[in-house]
Simulated scan of single mutants.
Amino acid sequence: MRLRVLSAAVALACATLGVATGPAQTAAAHTAEALDAGHFHGVNWAAPGDNYADGPIALSGLSLTDDYATTYAKASAVIKGFRRNLGANTVRLPINPYTTGGTYWSSYRAVIDAATARGFDVVLGYWEGTSAQKDGKIDSLPAFWDMWTTVTDAYRHNSRVFFEPMNEPFGYTAAQWTDLAAQWLATFPSVPRDRVFVSGTGYNDSVLAVCADSRLAGTYLSLHHYGFWKQDTGYAAWVADLKSRIGGCASRTVADEFGAPMTSGLNYDERASDSTDSNSVAFLQADTDTFRALHIGSVYWPGLRTGDTYTMEALTGSGTHPQLVTTNVTGADRLAWAWGKGHAAMEG
């Protein structure tokens, strides 16, 4: 995969991508050697109607009526597509109590099993429900703990499976969320800390508070970052915005959600000023340059989600042998660039 990075963008990246420092740096420093955040080169596989659900989650291309064997075959094809088309080694998957507490759990496990069998790391994250329950808080604590008991019992001995206690805990204050994350670690002491992703505060939009909490030492930190959060923001401003959310915690940080429009024909290799959507192009160039420079792991949102304009891959075919087609080659180029692959070439 050939990457085309503008000489102006490369020069600006070299000038601005210094490692940030801050009060959380001390808490993060002693875990730096043990953790390898930059190892995670991944994508999210999401449900067509998003992962917030008041029932079992059926990922794009799968069905709640599929048995284990059918799900395994379909998932194997999708995982192969992620590797073949993008060079990914990680997939992030949603879970909820409806998925793990009913009959579908045996089928859903086929997705995890198919991915790990093919050498993928799997990040399992809890998503809350929809409607009135979508408030950034755990819907039911008893169901939450039962869910995680089921999941950790099944996969704590599989070194390729990682656990993210909650996606986007925006309903909690920083103190409440760090307390809850610490409680999760204390509840499941047999899970190695280096297989836990602790979400940043808010919409996973800052890892500073979780990085500074010594109770969470040894864990990875999950960060989300999106271009739609701000408009008319240039490359340098996006670099500064991202770095302000990481502080001195790059060695532990994995951006397990970030994304931009892929199906609208944008060229992410051109100058942002030449694009019809300069903000999205500047954002994606800034994020991928920063991830590469700071050796931050990154998991694109979404690698596959039917009906999502951000999706990096689209489904073709049917039955147990679906195929994936990349929706935007330049977007895939930028993703590979974030993962330390490819090379820069000058354009006139």
Rank of each mutant, 00 (worst) to 15 (best):
L3Q: 03
V5P: 00
V10R: 14
V10A: 15
A13R: 14
A15P: 10
V19C: 04
T21D: 14
E33H: 10
D36G: 08
A37L: 11
V43S: 01
D50R: 00
Y52F: 15
Y52I: 02
D54P: 04
G55C: 03
S60R: 00
L62P: 10
Y68W: 12
S76P: 08
R84K: 10
P94Y: 06
G102L: 06
W105Q: 13
A114Y: 05
V122H: 11
S131L: 06
K134W: 09
G136C: 03
I138H: 12
I138A: 11
V151S: 05
V151K: 06
N167S: 14
E168F: 05
G171Y: 12
G171M: 11
T173P: 09
A175T: 15
T178G: 11
W184I: 07
L185K: 11
S190A: 15
F197G: 04
D205R: 05
D205G: 02
S206P: 10
V210H: 02
A212I: 03
R215A: 11
L221K: 15
A240F: 02
S244T: 10
C249K: 00
G259C: 09
E270V: 05
A272Y: 11
D274L: 12
D277N: 15
N279Q: 07
V281Y: 02
R292K: 13
I296A: 10
Y300N: 08
R305F: 14
D308H: 04
T316A: 12
H321L: 10
V325K: 13
T327N: 15
W339D: 04
K341R: 10
G342C: 01
H343T: 13
